[in-house]
């Protein structure tokens, strides 16, 4: 990432770590809030809970700032913290079955609002896309967590396989094998859920 006007994530984190620099911390939050929230939303299937989880992740970053290893990539550390929080959340929900892992419906307040800014789609096309997206989210939630996290990080957040290996602390080959296993399973799940393969037109 190139930030002509600003410091790198690692420099910012160094300032947070050594000078309790709140401005630097705010900058890190600003940069990473949305990706972390997206991760939590896809991992838990709960858009609103994802907001809380992202906030919790950042408060952990701050409270554990002394543990950060300056040689490590900041984002790797942050993804790991967020993923662990998601695992905790999912475990908690399993114990309390009244909150099953289900994607939220679209009427869940402004947090669930779905937009296609500047897409120029007709309302019918938007509805179709929404239905497809809903099916995809449901399918993702049916994957085992260890597969889901790989799909979310690679396919949606664009991390490289070796970066995911760093985040999860597993060999890169394992990440890749989980990825194709996940794609195979998703193919089956999506077919069952009625998603048309390829383009709907």
């Amino acid at each position: 990432m190139t930030w002509s006007f600003a410091i790198t994530d690692e420099q910012a984190m160094w300032r947070v770590q050594n000078a309790d620099d709140h401005a630097a911390f705010a900058q890190l939050v600003e940069r990473w809030e949305q990706p972390i929230q997206r991760l939590c939303a896809r991992m838990t299937g709960d858009l609103h809970r994802a907001e809380d989880l992202a906030q919790e992740a950042f408060s952990r970053v701050f409270s554990r700032r002394r543990d950060y290893q300056p040689a490590a990539k900041f984002s790797t550390w942050l993804w790991r913290i967020a993923i662990n929080l998601c695992h905790d959340e999912i475990r908690l929900r399993r114990r309390r079955p009244e909150h099953p892992l289900e994607p939220e419906t679209e009427d869940g307040g402004e947090g669930g609002a779905v937009q296609f800014p500047g897409s120029g789609l007709s309302p019918a096309e938007v509805v179709e896309k929404l239905e497809q997206a809903e099916i995809v989210r449901r399918a993702l939630l049916q994957l085992p967590e260890s597969y889901r996290e790989v799909v979310v990080l690679r396919h949606y957040e664009g991390l490289k396989f070796h970066e995911i290996a760093d985040v999860l602390g597993i060999p890169e080959g394992t990440v890749k094998s989980r990825m194709f296993e996940a794609l195979d399973r998703l193919g089956g799940i999506l077919k069952r859920l009625g998603a048309a393969p390829g383009h709907p037109h």
């Binding site: 497809q132 949606y156 794609l183 998603a195």
Partner: peptide, 15 residues
């Protein structure tokens, strides 16, 4: 399958 996953790319609009 990857193409189907893309359906959720633009739609997850967070607050």
């Amino acid at each position: 399958t990857m193409g189907l996953l893309d359906a959720d790319h633009a739609t997850l609009a967070l607050p």
